[in-house]
Design a protein around this nucleic acid. Structure first.
Lengths: 230, 230
DNA sequence: AACCGGAATTATGCATACAATTTTTTAGCA
DNA sequence: TGCTAAAAAATTGTATGCATAATTCCGGTT
């Protein structure tokens, strides 16, 4: 029997598990940016041998999550201001695309769901509940991505977003910038309701550019502690 | 002395060499889409052991170049029409971004170089020299990317472009579509000379969308031979 | 006392060996 | 003859071991 096309992907391989475990350790801060990651240490922590671990390290390095210095081991990639300057235009283009596609593909139900999320977020904004606000904020952007219906887009965006998430810009947002962001979200909802693809794309791009500045600010402030840890 | 920041990347590691070797084998057609890739075979071909080979396979799989079936080995990823439908919007967004950035950053010398390439390509077009035309065509797009000055953008775009390059759409372009593409390139040059970023972005996006259709056409025609090989 | 050089230690890179799963072959049966 | 099932072969997943490069530590020298 011919299954050449019938087997896209199969079971949860142990291997990806390790990759995800290590990725989580990095995103959760168990491994800090700039920190050396000796293989032996990780082997003991994860209870595995060096072979599968090294395979995972190579994958994470190709993603940009780790830096692999030949004959000198792995280090958690440090996010520089230059990295951010390169990442945000790309993320902006991708997020803009998600907006365009979402305008074309969103059902009324999708928009209703986004509207609900939006007003819930607005409530958290007026109450100055930062954590709750940011949680819903992320949900909204994820929902727009999902509505866009392009898995590759989601994968690529998440890959970049994940690398930035470590810089916890959340706590450092100024209330002035917060009000601005909220106003931009009003426009996002309006553009989506009007299914105005170019406008939504433009707003999302600008919205992200503002976030870029916030992240760079955190990087400047927070950089010193990273240096100390390295 | 503190070199924590001073060592971004060091020597050409053997490992990346293997990754690139295999990637080349795939792009050059030594390994065809859908084909099974036994580890033993590649080990003998490359003259290495299974350990570094498997590390390379994992990396290529994370790039989407290979498919890794747990306990069942690797296969060269097959490009489906659905894949192309997902890839082209993303590539369009990235290429559009390259145009925007290029408009902002291009020096007069850059534009002069692109102009020269453009008219050289136009010459090949009037002479109906396909291979030469496409070689310069690619150079132009690469130059725009380079002028944009965003390494991450280049990396991500090349990753996608490389996966598509296997579908040799070159030979199959119709002369009608070819004339269209050439006309679009006239606009590309004009927009760049005017440093009209939004316009250049829009043209590049549309230009690529047309190529998307060509690739899908090749996929439909060429698909059967791939099936046979699998 | 500070600096330089070399040996010992440690960690990484690669190859080999063993275990487990899948695929193929083959024997048995209806 | 065709199908099922079990055993053999082959292939992948993981662990271990050896070779090599890098780091550290120690002794000698200026």
């Amino acid at each position: 029997m011919d299954e050449t096309l019938a087997t896209p992907i199969a079971r949860p391989s142990l291997h990806d598990t390790i990759v995800n475990r290590i990725r989580s350790m990095i995103y959760d801060g168990d491994l800090k940016p700039g920190e050396k990651v000796p293989e032996k240490m990780l082997c003991e922590t994860l209870g595995i041998s060096r072979t599968p671990l090294r395979e995972a390290l190579k994958v994470l390095a190709s993603e940009g999550t780790l830096e692999l210095l030949p004959n000198r081991g792995a280090r958690v990639a440090r996010l520089t201001a230059e990295d951010v300057d390169e990442m945000f235009p790309v993320m902006g283009a991708l997020e803009g695309l998600s907006g365009e596609l979402a305008c074309a593909k969103a059902t009324d139900a999708d928009i209703a769901e986004l509207r609900a999320l939006h007003y819930q977020m607005a409530l958290h904004h007026t109450r100055a509940e930062r954590a709750e606000y940011f949680a819903i904020n992320q949900k909204i952007h994820e929902k727009i991505m999902a509505v866009a219906g392009n898995d590759l887009l989601v994968t690529m965006y998440e890959g970049l977003a994940g690398r930035i998430r470590r810089a916890r810009y959340i706590s450092s947002i100024t209330s002035g910038r917060w009000d601005e962001a909220m106003a931009e979200h009003e426009e996002i909802l309006a553009a989506l309701e009007a299914r105005d693809a170019p406008r939504l794309a433009a707003i999302l791009k600008g919205h992200l550019r503002n976030k870029c500045e916030a992240v760079k600010e955190v990087l400047r402030t927070d950089g010193k502690s990273d240096e100390a840890a390295a």
